[in-house]
Amino acid sequence: MDTLIGIYKETGFAQLEWQMVVMWLVTFGLLYLAIVKKYEPLLLVPIALGALIANLPITEFILQEPVYSATGEQLDAGGLFYYFNQGIKLQIFPPLIFLGVGALTDFGPLIANPRTLLLGAAAQFGIFFTFLCAPLMGFNLSQAAAIGIIGGADGPTSIYVASELAPEQLGAIAIAAYSYMALVPLVQPPVMRLLTTEKERKIKMKTLRHVSQLEKIVFALMVMIFCLLVIPDAAPLLSMLFIGNLLRESKVTERLVKAAQNEIINIVTIFLGLCVGLKMGGYNSEGAHNFLNTYTLSILGLGMLAFVVATAAGVIMAKLMNSVSKNKINPLIGSAGVSAVPMAARVSQDEGQKADPSNYLLMHAMGPNVAGVIGSALAAGYFLAVFSN
């Protein structure tokens, strides 16, 4: 019997705790949303699998740091996922995601209708509103800044800021950001319908003019230079975004564009998702689970607030612009000011067609959508400049 007990104590079963089992249920829920409901499966599947691994009694082996002797000799190479985690810790993965996003993005709709830049800017109000609200719930200013970025509905940017300003909250912030990105088709439409009339939803916008290759290249170069001079801390994200876009618009680097759009972004997405999931396990110095706590629920609630306010701000800005302009904007495209590309733009299109099946808003909505990508990255750079040590 003593032998059997000894064998049992050597297995992982003896180290299981109830918090781990609860987190298994959370990961199964994420897998259900990803596989059955098809909500952001490319991110939620690796995040869920990373979270499952993090809540098995094996993390001390896979996350172990390298061990060195007093003379500097390496005694242990460390665990595999320790090295994967350096992609987040050293802020490598999010900029690489932006490279792929830039290679997939067409700035033509924004250039053809530059007014929509204001809609993307207005949607960032959700970020700053939540930043002001978070301290009321016990978060410090650095944590409030990281939580506020969730309002941009931009997972890589949220991870980028959280890894610097609030690494202890990274798991909850990443889950909130990607969950709300996945729930764009469910969360945004009620807000859009509440703030608009049927007549406004039926507004048809003029066909966008053709934008030349030269215009797109000049726009990308000028905006990149301007943004990086104004907020240098946004350089890692915005520079990679525009590098990817310039590769696309140059029309002479097809192989590089395809690599950025496919192989690079897909590989990084796997590692990024797994590493985010790994942040949803472990225990702090007081013995409390890093994810199952009231702060996590507060972050999820504040993230939803940020997202709803950002959506509403974009719609309201469009209505204000219509009050002073004869060339009307359909307020539905204001909701696309959050940077969930291109999902938010598709929601604007879907809601417009529900009001009038002959109304096509997708290309118009892409203007504020890509403006939102730039806006959330600038907001992230501002917070990093102010609160980073």
Rank of each mutant, 00 (worst) to 15 (best):
G6Q: 15
I7W: 15
Y8S: 10
T11E: 11
L16A: 11
W24M: 13
F28P: 06
G29Q: 12
G29R: 10
L30N: 05
V36H: 14
L43G: 01
G50W: 03
L56G: 00
T59S: 09
E65W: 03
V67T: 02
T71V: 02
A77N: 00
L80K: 00
L80Q: 01
L90G: 00
Q91W: 10
F93N: 01
L96S: 01
T105G: 04
T105C: 06
T116I: 14
I127L: 12
I127Y: 09
M137W: 10
N140F: 15
Q143H: 12
I147C: 02
G148F: 06
G152I: 10
D154N: 08
E164D: 12
L165G: 06
A174T: 13
M181S: 03
L186R: 12
E200R: 10
M205G: 02
K216V: 10
M222Y: 07
M224W: 07
C227Y: 11
C227I: 09
L228R: 01
L228E: 03
F242K: 02
F242I: 04
G244Q: 02
L246V: 07
T253N: 01
R255S: 10
A259P: 00
I265N: 02
T269G: 05
G273F: 11
L278P: 03
G282H: 09
A288N: 09
H289L: 09
N293Y: 07
Y295F: 08
T296R: 00
T296A: 02
S298N: 12
L300N: 00
F307E: 08
V308G: 01
A313E: 09
I316Y: 13
N322K: 08
V324S: 04
K328I: 14
S335G: 15
V347Y: 09
P357K: 13
S358H: 09
N359T: 12
N359V: 14
Y360V: 15
L362R: 05
A365I: 08
L384D: 01
S388R: 12
